[in-house]
Computed example of a mutant assay.
Amino acid sequence: MITHPSAQEIVAGVAQWLPVDGSASIFSLRVARNALEIAARDMAMSPAADARAAERMHALLGRGGTREELDVALVEAIRSGAIASDDPSLVAHLRACALDTIAIDQPKYAHTLG
């Protein structure tokens, strides 16, 4: 189960990190811009990515639930051996999750895995 800062947490972090006295360096501004672009992509793309992941996990687990609940259930199923770590459906799900995450976090690199 992969967790990351939410878009709200990223925006709040940038707001706290950037100086308000005009002393921000070009590098600092580029870092802030990159973080805000990630937050914007997260807000735009995460709902659909989460829905796709939940749908795949529903098929894998044979049960419904929220994305978070299904993530926990999937981890438990893998740990218990109910789902083999090399199960093709699991591997396809994890690959799709990785591609969705990369599309949000580092979209320039998404094409190398797709």
Rank of each mutant, 00 (worst) to 15 (best):
T3C: 07
T3W: 04
H4D: 14
H4R: 13
H4E: 15
H4L: 06
A7Y: 01
A7F: 03
A7L: 02
E9R: 02
I10L: 12
I10F: 00
A12M: 04
G13C: 08
G13R: 09
G13W: 09
V14H: 03
A15Q: 14
Q16K: 13
W17M: 12
L18Q: 04
P19M: 06
V20E: 02
D21H: 11
G22A: 10
G22Y: 01
G22P: 05
G22R: 01
S23F: 04
S23M: 09
S23Q: 03
A24S: 07
A24G: 04
S25Q: 08
I26H: 13
I26Q: 03
F27C: 09
F27W: 00
F27E: 10
F27A: 14
F27G: 11
S28E: 09
L29N: 13
R30V: 12
V31L: 14
V31E: 02
A32H: 05
A32Q: 02
R33F: 02
R33Y: 07
R33S: 06
R33C: 02
N34D: 10
N34Q: 09
N34V: 00
L36F: 02
L36C: 14
I38C: 12
A39M: 04
A39D: 01
A40R: 04
A40C: 11
M43N: 15
M43A: 10
M43P: 11
A44L: 07
M45P: 06
M45H: 07
S46T: 14
S46D: 13
S46G: 03
S46E: 14
P47Y: 08
P47V: 11
P47K: 15
P47S: 06
A48Y: 01
A48R: 12
A49Q: 03
A49K: 07
D50W: 06
D50N: 10
A51Q: 05
A51W: 06
A53V: 10
A53C: 11
A54E: 07
A54H: 00
A54N: 04
E55R: 00
E55Q: 15
E55G: 11
E55V: 06
R56A: 13
M57R: 10
M57Q: 08
A59S: 14
L60I: 10
L60W: 06
L61E: 03
L61V: 07
L61N: 03
L61H: 04
G62D: 10
R63C: 09
G65Y: 14
T66W: 12
T66H: 13
R67Y: 15
R67K: 12
R67N: 12
E68P: 03
L70G: 06
D71W: 14
D71I: 14
V72S: 04
V72L: 13
L74E: 11
L74G: 11
